[in-house]
């Protein structure tokens, strides 16, 4: 009797698959240290808290103050500008580098190994290295004796935005070119052979085969890039601390500085909520717009 019962129990377990408890540890970690903090951020946005004494309820005060603060709008505007300019800079570069390294020539394999080196450097390392390299008195300014290179790269409010975009591109293009390299290598060789027979030029092959075949990779990479752009923090923090003035105070940096430098955790939590909402809207919007889910389902079929 008891054996029959366990047998049928086991049978059922096998039909329905492994025990749901197997997801429990991962789910617990994620709930406690990612979902609960998200909810808590919403709660803290209605409190006054200096980070040391207990938070005190203040109602909507933080929201009205933060949402009418010009610094918030400056940060939002800068973050949008970074998203757009970064995408315009990084996508063509990543695409070209990715397609280039997808080639099987030996010299390209060697170059690829070097191209990916920035991936292993920490943001702290990258920030510190570029800060030193871009110093107005040393580094790049002095190396070539070219006056155009002797700029106060990080101190000039006109320039600093583009310098930050460049350093971010330096850090992240290797990752995105990896995506494009993998995508390009998935394109069947027969497509190119057929085009070759038809006498298609290299540019024609790129435009009519490579680009359309990479459309899902473009979608994936762009989605990651746009959502990722919203969260650039460490490199910018080390390079400029948001300055000069407010010239590079992106939204995440504004949140950090408001919270931990000005000890205003309530206002910072409002900014955190803005980050979450914008991030989710961007992700959902891009998914709907571009059919990211179609891509994943296509992958499942592969």
């Amino acid at each position: 009797m008891s054996t029959a019962k366990t047998a049928s129990g086991a049978e059922k377990a096998l039909r329905t698959g492994p025990s749901s408890w197997m997801v429990a540890p991962a789910l617990a970690f994620f709930l406690i240290f990612a979902i609960v903090p998200l909810i808590l951020a919403a709660v803290l946005s209605f409190t006054k808290w200096d980070g040391i004494n207990p938070p005190a309820w203040t109602g909507l005060g933080n929201w009205t103050r933060t949402l009418s603060d010009p610094v918030t709008f400056q940060s939002l505007w800068l973050s949008f500008k970074v998203i757009i300019v970064s995408w315009l800079v990084q996508t063509p570069l990543s695409l070209l580098v990715g397609v280039f390294t997808a080639g099987r020539q030996r010299y390209r394999a060697v170059l690829a190994a070097l191209y990916f080196l920035p991936l292993i450097l920490s943001s702290a390392a990258i920030g510190i290295a570029f800060k030193s390299l871009l110093d107005p008195n040393f580094g790049l300014s002095k190396a070539f004796g070219i006056p155009a290179l002797a700029q106060d790269w990080l101190g000039n409010p006109e320039l600093v935005f583009y310098v930050v975009v460049f350093v971010i591109a330096w850090q992240f293009v290797p990752f995105h070119s990896l995506l494009y390299q993998a995508g390009t290598r998935q394109i069947p060789a027969s497509f190119y052979e057929a085009a070759e027979l038809d006498g298609a030029s290299r540019v024609q092959q790129f435009v009519h085969i490579t680009l359309p075949q990479l459309r899902y990779t473009i979608v994936t990479s762009s989605t990651l890039m746009v959502v990722g752009s919203l969260t650039y923090f460490d490199v910018v923090y080390i390079l400029t601390q948001g300055g000069p003035g407010y010239a590079t105070r992106l939204l995440p940096l504004d949140m950090y500085l408001t919270g931990f430098a000005s000890s205003d955790m309530g206002d910072a939590s409002v900014l955190a909520m803005l980050l979450v909402v914008i991030g989710l809207l961007l992700a959902v919007g891009l998914t709907k717009l571009t059919g990211f889910s179609r891509m994943t389902s296509q992958q499942e079929g592969a």
């Binding site: 803290l44 919203l230 949140m255 955790m265 991030g279």
Partner: peptide
């Protein structure tokens, strides 16, 4: 899709 930096303040708490 969630920018996880946003949780840093509640995590600190």
């Amino acid at each position: 899709a969630i920018p996880l930096q946003a949780t840093i303040i509640p995590l600190y708490y």
